[in-house]
Design a protein around this nucleic acid. Structure first.
Lengths: 291, 291
DNA sequence: CCGGCCATGAAATTGAAATTTCAGGGCCGG
DNA sequence: CCGGCCCTGAAATTTCAATTTCATGGCCGG
């Protein structure tokens, strides 16, 4: 029994920190593994000890010993630490960050790149044909109905705000427990329904879309790219990427898309004479006046 | 038993794709788990089947069955697929899409870079101290009131949706012509008011903020960096860059900021014991209650 | 050249996670 | 109301990774 007294207060330091601390005193085979970990490219916690050992070219025993020596009860504990730090943020980062030099910068940096990635993927996968067709309808429809539940509600609200900058008759369907009946029966052939349905969707959404479809109302469906391919009936479908490596999804993708639709719709409306110059002023209003 | 003819070319579809394909025919308990996976924000392969089952609130048996049904030999195979695909970057379907659809109409490219620029500037100018302080209050406040008018309304709605994922008593003040009087008188010292005021602001906003201030309620003010410097009274101010070279402002910055606040608040709440790990389920709740 | 010390990996052992089994129970069609 | 069908989670079983043991061999001081 190696009488290694674990009198350390056992506060959670990051795995890398622990390795640095012990690096000099590690035997060769364990050090090989430790160095592998230090410049490991991917998500360490997605691998198991056996694989890591193989990658480093050492025996499983060495791996086991290494994590013990680093102060973990076992490999599983180490893996969990790595995983949770990623998901929950290092408690250290938030509290003891006076010590380390580059504390949050890098953290918020990774949020930024997460958003940028989502945006990029969203714009990459846009279907220009559907967009083109939808834009025409957005401009020409007599009335536009917008619907979105739960997390999709605010995007519908955003879209409405944008659209009323350049046209009339843009209605946001109520989202509370209220019934849609009265609105749905109002749907007319010249209308357009824009349904925002990011995960996770509720059955109501499909019902409204279906109702519109039955009445011959075209449906523009904004969804996320992970959604099922047995999509609800929709005339045009535009998907966004909302994936993020943090706890919550990111909606910068949909925001970018709606912004894009808005700008292009105004252009189109202007071209077709449906927006007169003075109407565009409305749009500019928010830009210009500083009050 | 498994009548699944394995003559399928078995090209590696992403886990998500496989789930989509089978989603409709999955029994409820397996579907619950499948939904959890589709919504899973983090690194799936860092979790084991037992943990996933627990998060989804189903038995380990269900998890085991699910992966079998999706065509994997066992859970381990699925985990490895996820891990390796991640390593390779984007999932297959993104790749295929990229090929045929024209690279990027340069026009939408410039929208993209506009958004990215706004996001970057937003994250660059974040005041970490204010954020830190605001986060604590977000976690500890008894009640949170959110207010936003016009174009700011949907951001307040988004923030509310995020915050109710991990805490109670988050209220979105009505935005219609309704009077705030009744709500404002309710403001208590333990509360927090979050005011979203992107240009162009209306006088009501300053009034509500002022009312809160008078009652000793701290105010977190989310605004845009172009706002006039005669700011309303606010305890903490966080500004975003919303400028865009197109007709409308872009709100990806505020969205990123709110996302950031949400994730960090959950982390903080977890540390202070206000959200225990198993309460992540709240966040994943949206996954579960679909029947 | 010996003898203590220690690192090492193969192999045995342990132990946790995954799978399978099984009894209970809901649902549906007859 | 019955009977088959299938889903379900608890528990038994199996599987396989992780740990421990142990024989070997290198290194160094005497």
């Amino acid at each position: 029994m190696n009488g290694k007294a674990p009198n350390t207060p056992e506060r959670p330091r990051s795995l890398e920190a622990r390795i640095q601390e012990h690096l000099s005193e590690l035997p060769s085979s364990e050090r090989k593994l430790a160095e592998l970990i230090l410049d490991f490219p991917g998500e360490l916690s997605a691998y198991n000890a056996t694989e890591l050992a193989k990658l480093a070219g050492v025996s499983k025993a060495a791996a086991s010993r290494l994590f013990k020596r680093l102060g973990f009860a076992n490999f599983e504990e180490a893996r969990r630490l790595v995983r949770d730090i990623k998901q929950w943020g290092s408690p250290i980062y938030l509290h003891e960050r006076q010590q380390d030099s580059s504390p949050l910068p890098s953290e918020s940096q990774s949020f930024l790149s997460d958003h940028v990635a989502a945006l990029t993927r969203t714009f990459e996968q846009l279907d220009e044909e559907d967009i083109e067709a939808a834009l025409h309808r957005i401009v020409e429809a007599r009335r536009i109905w917008l619907v979105g539940f739960r997390n999709s509600y605010f995007m519908a609200a955003y879209a409405r705000w944008q659209f009323i900058q350049f046209r009339r008759q843009v209605h946001l369907l109520p989202h509370a427990g209220e019934t849609f009946g009265e609105h749905v029966t109002e749907f007319g052939e010249d209308d357009l329904l824009i349904a925002v349905g990011m995960r996770r969707r509720v059955p109501e959404l499909a019902r409204v879309m279906h109702a519109a479809h039955e009445r011959g109302v075209p449906v523009l469906y904004l969804t996320d790219s992970l959604s099922s391919d047995k999509k609800p009936v929709a005339t045009w479908t535009l998907s966004c990427d909302i994936s993020s490596s943090f706890l919550f999804h990111t909606y910068v993708g949909p925001m970018g898309l709606i912004h894009y639709l808005s700008v292009q719709a105004v252009r189109l409306a202007g071209k077709s004479g449906r927006v007169r110059l003075e109407d565009i002023e409305i749009a500019h209003e928010q830009v210009r006046d500083f009050d």
